[in-house]
Amino acid sequence: MKQEYTITVYTENQVGLLNRIAIIFSRRKINVESLNTSPTEVESVHRFTIVIDETEEVVKKLCRQIEKQVDVLKAYYNTNEEIIWQELALYKVPTDVIAEEVKVERLLREHGASAVVIRKDYTVFQVSGHREETENLIKVLEPYGLIEFVRSARVAIIKDSNGFHEKLKEFEHQQPREEVIENEYLNKGQTIFTM
């Protein structure tokens, strides 16, 4: 069954690696819904967060292909239940319409939005949340002349993850150890934190 999976890839910071990872998807004609690159808690280690809609079998194979790349340290995949994720959206609307027809405060309250910029001619709101939440606000603002909308890629934290510091130490050993051999999932049932 196809569903949304979030792939988290820990990598070296290497020019060209984005392409190497991207072509793993495009070669198999798989659409990437969202892709984000970011630093991590470990200096010099980068993190890709990739969202695709696929079956688990396909996602598992993709992760193995990604991990096979020389500059990739580790690739994980998770369902939406296993992660905390957010996307950031910005909305530009004419200030006069907003001021006259809707109460800005109400908008802010109901959609968890904050105003980033308020100018005479336009106002920029910001919302972070899941896809549905950011999409809802588009519908609300459209009648009031939404000028511009943009949404960021997904960033996600794996609930069960203990971060990458310890893992990296294992990778830095000359000789591989038992611990790094598990190449599939993080251990379940460890420190779980939710928002």
Partner: peptide, 14 residues
């Protein structure tokens, strides 16, 4: 070169 931290040519055998 005999080690690259992001590259594991072969594992220890389980």
């Amino acid at each position: 070169c005999d080690h690259i931290r992001s590259y594991r040519p072969k594992p220890i055998i389980r």
